[in-house]
Design a protein around this nucleic acid. Structure first.
Length: 278
DNA sequence: GACCAGGTATTGC
DNA sequence: GCAATACATGGT
């Protein structure tokens, strides 16, 4: 099936938002959406040829929706974002599975993209239901809650292993209900997520933005801080959050993706490997 | 052999 | 509240 573009597969899938996509030698991307193994190929006109999941599932994953065009038009008028948006017109926020996203960004603290990918793949390989071709569904919270800490560490989690185990327990028991947070306010989502061990303000915002439709979440990491300093002058994290909310409002999350990616491309950050510029 | 990586938890003021 | 520090691990 054909998905209308522009959808920038490499930057959207490999750029530090999702961690279990791989690109084969022939250019095909393979990964998991829902519990389905999906294969996608970028086409020269910016559209995508996809198979393995329904159109509805993929449109949801890439957040192909009415509000998108207007959101991009608003942001493109901002001189601080215009160049990045022209350079990466198909960079998209994804709507990922909340539990997998929670684990991924819990793992991301003081870590790098390549290592996060390795850990996420190891967790899926060890505890996930196989889907063929070396892929697997992401293991549900209950399964990771019962894992032995040593086995979690063997996946490369390091000191984060107990955080993940305890977070998995809270989610498995229903003490934090991730599904119910979809579409919640930024404040509500953040307060709920901060109850999870290993989840601080930045990770909470990543979970909210990349899996819960909290479009005004604005994750502030080293890259965004640097990007903001370059564009607007140095600010601490607190002032940056206020500035972003005032300037971009409900569009702040997508603005963050453009700031983050534009800077990482410029600096050729590790993890932005072999991605050709348009 | 430091230094770094999409920060967080803990401690001390 | 805010600053300082430790933290597993693997790659430069």
């Amino acid at each position: 099936m054909r998905l209308r573009g522009p959808i920038d597969l490499p930057h959207s899938l490999l750029g530090g938002q999702a961690f279990r996509w791989s690109q084969a030698e022939d250019g095909a991307f393979r990964g998991v959406v829902g519990d389905a193994l999906v294969e996608m190929r970028p086409r020269a006109d910016g559209s995508v040829e996809a198979e393995g999941a329904s159109r509805a599932a993929l449109a949801s994953y890439f957040r192909i929706e009415r509000a998108d065009a207007a959101r991009r038009a608003r942001l493109a008028r901002d001189p601080a974002l215009a160049d990045a948006m022209r350079a990466l017109p198909g960079l998209r926020l994804l709507r990922q599975d909340p539990w997998e996203t929670t684990v991924a960004f819990l793992t991301s603290a003081n870590n790098n993209v390549l290592r996060i990918e390795g850990t996420m793949r190891a967790l899926a390989a060890r505890w996930g239901d196989p889907l063929g071709e070396g892929h697997a569904a992401f293991p549900p919270p209950g399964r990771l809650a019962r894992a032995r800490e040593a086995d979690l560490r063997a996946c490369g989690l390091g000191y984060r292993a107990p955080f993940l185990r305890d977070t998995a327990r809270l989610v498995a028991r229903g003490e934090v209900d991730l599904a119910s947070l979809r579409g919640a306010s930024h404040k509500e989502a953040r307060e709920a997520l901060l109850a999870l061990p290993g989840v601080g303000p930045k990770v909470a915002d990543c979970i909210a933005l990349f899996s819960l439709d909290v479009d005004d979440a604005f994750p502030i990491d080293r890259w965004v801080l640097r990007a903001m300093a370059g564009a607007f002058g140095p600010m601490d994290a607190k002032r940056t959050a206020a500035f972003a909310a005032a300037r971009w409002g409900r569009d702040a999350g997508l603005a963050q993706q453009y700031l983050f990616h534009a800077l990482r491309l410029r600096e050729r950050a590790p993890g932005t490997r072999r991605v050709a510029l348009a």
